[in-house]
Amino acid sequence: MGLLNSLGLTGNCENCSRKSDGFFCNLSRETLRALESMRFTNIYPQGAVLFAEQDAPQGVFVICKGRAKLSMTSSEGKSVILRIVGPGEALGLHAVVSGQPYQASAETVEPCQVAFIRRDDFLRFLRQHPEASLNAAQQLSENYQVACEQVRSLGLVHSATGKLAGFLLTCATKGQPTRQGTRMLLTLTHEEIGQMIGLSRETVTRTMGDFRHRQLVSVRGSAVFIPDKGALEHYAEL
């Protein structure tokens, strides 16, 4: 508990001061209590592997604090990042529900607090709490949409400009309108962006520089502005 307190966290979902909009944070008190009774909370350092591709599904990992990346490796050893997961999201949901091995590896990208729920407990929890099942369905539905977008980007979009423009436009759907255009926070490195869309770090940096030169985007720290989404769509090979 001392370590949890030092990170500004509580060990209890109901009273958690960092409750997010995540799928597994927005549950009723009764359902949260049921979840609490079966979860184990751990703190992981940056770079810790929560589970590896092809491991048998032991359970789901819900991120309470921090971020983790979900990635798969091609037969040539190249890494493809599927997505970066934040607080309230569950990792390993597909494997646990389907009973198939984990399709991807999960690794923390910063120190994380993670709740683990064993597979059998989690499946029973979903069957007994439709509210939790609905949240799981929401998350799977969004994960599916992201995966389809990546399939489209990897398979159908061939130019670096098209891939990066598509990626930025996808991120912009969660951005905020400002006088300078749509503003979004991009905390990924160029290497991580490259691993999501199938480009090298150098190509992402070069293409982003080109976009800035053409005033398709402007960057201030980790904030990225898109002044004219229509102009960027022109490059996105949509």
């Binding site: 991807a104 599916y144 995966a147 389809c148 199938g198 480009l199 190509t203």
Partner: peptide, 28 residues
């Protein structure tokens, strides 16, 4: 939940296939 999980599994398979077959060609 089961059906969405099944669909997600298919999408993962497609991603893996694309990664295996095309990633080296698509890079750069």
């Amino acid at each position: 939940v089961e059906q969405l999980s099944h669909r997600l599994g298919i999408a993962f398979d497609q991603l893996r296939l694309l990664s295996d077959l095309n990633l080296s060609l698509l890079t750069d």
